[in-house]
Design a binder for these strands. Structure first.
Lengths: 252, 252
DNA sequence: AAGTGGTCTAGACCACCAT
DNA sequence: TGGTGGTCTAGACCACTTA
């Protein structure tokens, strides 16, 4: 990394991406935990032996990806999965009137069982690892009415010791628990949506009728390097709520 | 704009945002048409009497918003609404297997009628303007099978002279027609999704049964300064296709 | 007052494209 | 070869937060 202008080794990639990679690796390694301040840009530029502008460009990208948060005058921090971030980045349900609210989560069940072959493939778990699945079913309510039925599947190996008790007693978001309890930072999700009909069970839970139309969301949540962490199937009663997709940058 | 470091007037906003604003106004004014090259960054920096870095920062944002496209060694261009961009930025339907294809569009009807009060409000049209609506119904097919039923509503005043003939005979995307034919550049959309049931008419068009679950997408398309341009209601048969929402940056 | 991020400048050089 | 965008540096100064 001891490169100056006119002396770029350039095996392949620009310096700032290399710096970004190093910062990312430190994040993965746990050098800076959730909500912690990174060293100042000046210090980072000394550490990596690059100019401050190069550090800024690396951090720019991590901020754009919502992995880091800058606060002028205070510092640069590891983004946390608090309620605010959930609402802005990971929870895409709003009232038909456009109002966004934080959902109340009730855990209906917490079970362990085998991963199916399809699940193992999506979670990049080798079938011969015999990894088991944690299966968590939650109901999300808005204004005291059930709106979303979530079925979460995570690999047991990534969350050693996670129990129903720990899960229920967390005092923040689920991804916050992943982040602070297991060092797993969800940085991106991919979702596929379709329309389906409520079966008897989901209809009952969501307070609607069998055969009512439901929005189905299949989500894969990823941590750094696009490593899959969680599968989640959501069934949404869209009678009074909708899924919004404003493709980033809400206010321009 | 004759500001140098240490002599910033700073009524309120940073220089690069002012430059961005000026570039945007030139885009709105039609100084650079679709696919046209902007002046080089050097020339722009001379024109605005700022450093090249400041111009770059302004353009950075416009590129992030997909309004401009940079090509190293060639120049910076006004992004066009070609099929490629449609597929990556505005068409969110993929096969259940994840395959993305460009849809074939068939126009079922092209009508003129009054705007409803709700539509006028969403299009920021004053009720007393008596603006009429163009209502266009399209079926989008993938692999020769109908998948999406689109109902488009646009204000007649923004598209003077647009006829069914012109609409049908365009040889590119619909937003391309807006852009090159009427100088209206769609730069952003907001979508709200819900699940619904097919009525007899939509079921027939989409080749499914009455009462089948359909994904409904209500879109508002905006041009610069968040001015609404188009309302679009899409009904999607999600038997073999899905809506994807990968929140920007697909590959990280 | 000291420290942090944010803006702006100026200049050198690299990577890529068209001719 | 000349022009374009892309990277990197160095330094000055502004805006904001904390103490």
């Amino acid at each position: 990394m001891a490169q100056t202008a006119g002396n770029i080794v350039h095996s392949f990639s620009p310096l700032y991406l290399e710096v970004k990679r190093l910062i990312t690796e430190s994040l993965i390694g746990g050098e800076w935990k959730a909500a912690a301040a990174l060293p100042s840009e000046t210090r980072l530029s000394q550490r990596f032996k690059v100019s401050i502008g190069t550090v800024r460009k690396a951090i720019d990208e991590l901020v754009a990806e919502h992995i880091l948060v800058r606060q002028q005058g205070r510092g640069t921090f590891v983004a946390t999965h608090d309620r605010r971030r959930l609402l802005f980045n990971f929870f895409h349900i709003v009232g038909t009137d456009g109002v966004k609210n934080y959902p109340a989560v009730e855990t209906l069940s917490f079970r362990r069982s085998a991963l199916t072959a399809a699940e193992a493939a999506k979670l990049h778990v080798s079938a011969k690892d015999n990894t088991r699945a944690l299966r968590i079913r939650n109901v999300l309510s808005l204004e005291d009415r059930p709106v979303v039925l979530d079925d979460i599947v995570i690999g047991e190996h990534m969350f050693p010791g996670l129990s129903a008790d720990i899960f229920r007693k967390r005092d923040n978001t689920i991804y916050q628990l992943y982040q602070t309890g297991y060092g797993i930072n969800v940085v991106r999700t991919a979702e596929r949506l379709s329309a389906t009909l409520a079966d008897a069970e989901s209809a009952k839970i969501l307070g609607t009728k069998t055969g009512a139309p439901l929005l189905q969301i299949n989500r894969i949540a990823y941590t750094y390097h696009s490593v899959p962490v969680e599968l989640r199937k959501s069934l949404v009663n869209t009678q009074e709520h909708e899924y919004f997709s404003d493709l980033d940058r809400p206010a321009r």
